[in-house]
């Protein structure tokens, strides 16, 4: 654990109840290419920003493409309003996320969590600059809710359908690859502008591996601290399988228990083999 205090003010890891529990789906909303699922988890603790859950549909999990899914899927918590509600932002990229995106009120999720280590508070009074790419915007929503100080949110999407995800972040600056919304180009263009204007910042980023790597390289060049929420293939989410390792300067670490948020300084690269789609 690092010296800086966590973004939640308490701990950057909230412990999970032991075992799978059932959470009824209470709402489903579509924002362009993304689905937001809300569920009721009254007995679970409130997670920290950056933590995740292992999710499965409580019924009919399996028999999709390639007769999958079999294992639960890792999903960052999008928001955790008071009253034991959890919200997730999901992009359908395969059989597991496809099944999750089908669910609605009347269905239920099986979940384990909250898992992993979340974001920490900015060090030395720096201002927080949040940069998200695609479905990686999810953990930045709860982070901007939980950070007390004013934050800047920069979001990158590939096209207009995905840019609808920005509806979840009033006041965010948007970039799209095809120019359908906001700045045309990568979100790192916006990040470079922000850091030009005020380099006394700490960057919080989550997104596809190439975007995270661009953020990491940019921040390294400018000496700006960054916390990156990475992704890797996970089977268990609680340190049991050793399947989710990512290379760091001190060897492999299990992303599910030592991450998913890692200090950029620990990484030689954010390009994780097998991650992304």
């Amino acid at each position: 654990m690092t010296a800086s205090s966590p973004a939640t003010g308490a701990a950057d890891r909230v412990r999970a109840p032991f075992g799978v529990r059932t959470a009824p789906v209470t709402a489903r909303d579509v924002h362009g290419a993304y689905t937001v699922l809300a569920c009721a988890d009254p007995t679970g603790p409130r997670p920290c920003a950056g933590q995740f859950y292992m999710l499965a549909a409580a019924a009919r999990w399996g028999a999709g493409e390639d007769e999958r899914p079999y294992l639960p899927r890792a999903l960052s918590v999008l928001r955790a309003p008071e009253g034991g509600e959890l919200r997730f932002l999901i992009e359908d990229v395969g059989p597991g996320t496809e099944r999750l995106c089908e669910l609605g009120p009347g269905d239920a999720l099986s979940l384990v969590g909250p898992l992993g280590v979340g974001f920490r508070e900015p060090r030395d009074g720096r201002r927080a600059v949040l940069a998200g790419g695609g479905v990686g915007i999810a953990p930045l929503a709860i982070l901007s809710d939980q950070l007390r100080a004013h934050t800047t949110v920069l979001l990158g999407f590939r096209d207009g359908a995905h840019a609808a995800g920005a509806e979840l972040f009033p006041g965010a600056r948007v970039a799209t690859d095809d120019g359908a919304a906001g700045h045309r180009g990568p979100v790192t263009d916006l990040l470079a502008q922000e850091l030009d204007a005020d380099p006394l910042a700490e960057v919080y980023a989550c997104g596809p591996p190439p975007m995270l790597e661009a953020v990491r390289a940019l921040c390294e060049l400018r000496g700006v601290p960054a916390q990156l929420a990475l992704e890797s293939g996970m089977a268990c989410g609680f340190g049991a399988c050793f399947g989710c390792v990512v290379p760091t300067r001190d060897g492999y670490v299990r992303l599910c228990v030592d991450g998913p948020v890692l200090d950029a300084g620990r990484l030689q690269t954010a390009l994780v083999p097998g991650a992304g789609h």
Binding site: R68, Y70, F242, V246, P247, G274
Partner: peptide, 14 residues
């Protein structure tokens, strides 16, 4: 341990 990726999901297995 081995270089990642280390996991591949199967129909009912891994």
């Amino acid at each position: 341990g081995n270089a990642p990726p280390r996991l591949w999901e199967l129909p009912a297995g891994l």
